[in-house]
Design a protein around this nucleic acid. Structure first.
Lengths: 209, 209
DNA sequence: GGTATTACTAACCGATCGTTCAGTTAGTAT
DNA sequence: ATACTAACTGAACGATCGGTTAGTAATACC
């Protein structure tokens, strides 16, 4: 499954990444807990025990997958912080970046968003997620303070609704459909920032203050 | 668990609704597939087989729970259709109603939103959910056509993002917190319809056309 | 051909799964 | 006291679970 120019030693077959991709697809289809190693083996066309050559446990597969998703999302925040700028612009950048990560690593982020907390691996992932949310909330708060965003709604509610919308992408977005990642990011941000309603004259009056 | 004024015949203990409530709480905490009947029995303080007096199977518990959630959501649509009016107003009504259902039946709707499709019960629930979504999308489309909502974004994307936001409530809303259902509905609709951004003079110009 | 590397296997393990069965228990009604 | 109603039990079942073990298999390299 590793098709670089160099010849690989050893028996041809799946590598770790190949197993991981198939595992993640099964985990998001059936749920992690409902996906037995037997189902996974069937899906790979291997025996159950062959999987244990590549990963020590079912848990390790999950851990690796969640790390991929979280790493990408955290990367968006790092890159945004490094760039600096007004909070409103940085938030815009984070939202676009998040949408791109969701689209690029759809199966992995989908798995992450469905984590429950039954095992230590899951609890660690949830903890990293909470830290991510906290940093985004701080950014929203800054954007409210600088006047870019409305401040009549609690900052935590704002962050939750915003990422509720963005995260919903994993439930319905299909790559290769009508919308690519850029268009999707544009739409999400348009809805989030400017809303759905058409302006009325009353609204314009409100806006004029 | 049934504490009406009349005396109930039979041995005191849980009734079906009592078992169901505890089951749903466990299902949303651990996930349906990861909640064994043993875990549920522990939680109820009963034996595993006692559960089978009340419900024929684990599946039947799930079926009953999902029906509760779907029934409530479908009820919002029925009531809105019966009332009639402009599409924009009906959509507003559906959104408020949905938020209220989410808050009032939080555990049940939470369970519904996490259904995967592994069993016939789950697939039936997903089918009902799709029918619900389809009706809301039709309403959004009407509101776009009547000019209440922006029509530069695909109607299906709009419906998905909208309910993505609303449905996210089940992941973070805590009853008895700072926001009651009415305030929450107000906030959700404000964000959805009017967005998050503060107006700038460029925006006002755009709005003026 | 032999060695190193890497992927894969069948049989097995102890534990847990959802469910069944033949009972027992705790209340009300007569 | 007996019958009815409704809730509950321990033991057992066949199936499945995640994982282990002692191998086998297929390639590249020398």
């Amino acid at each position: 499954m590793s098709e670089n120019g160099t010849l690989r030693r050893g028996r041809p077959g799946y590598d770790q990444q190949g197993i991981l991709d198939v595992a993640v697809a099964a985990f998001i289809q059936y749920g992690y807990d409902a996906t037995s190693m037997g189902v996974l083996a069937d899906r790979l066309g291997l025996s159950k025990s062959a999987i244990y050559h590549h990963f020590a446990s079912k848990d390790e597969i999950l851990d690796r997958a969640l790390d991929t998703a979280l790493g990408a999302l955290e990367g968006v925040l790092e890159e945004t912080d490094a760039a600096g700028g007004r909070a409103g612009d940085r938030l815009d950048h984070v939202l676009r970046g998040a949408v791109h990560v969701l689209v690029d690593k759809l199966p992995y982020v989908t798995l992450l968003l469905r984590v429950r907390g039954n095992t230590e691996v899951e609890r660690r992932a949830l903890s990293r997620r909470r830290a991510f949310d906290k940093r985004v909330t701080a950014l929203v708060s800054e954007a409210q303070a600088e006047g870019s965003l409305r401040s009549d709604i609690d900052v935590r509610v704002v962050e939750r609704l915003l990422f509720g919308m963005i995260n919903s992408i994993v439930e319905w977005y299909r790559p290769g459909g009508r919308e690519d990642a850029d268009k999707l990011a544009d739409d999400v941000i348009a809805v989030a920032l400017d809303g759905l309603r058409m302006p009325t004259s009353n609204r314009v009056q409100e806006l004029l203050g």
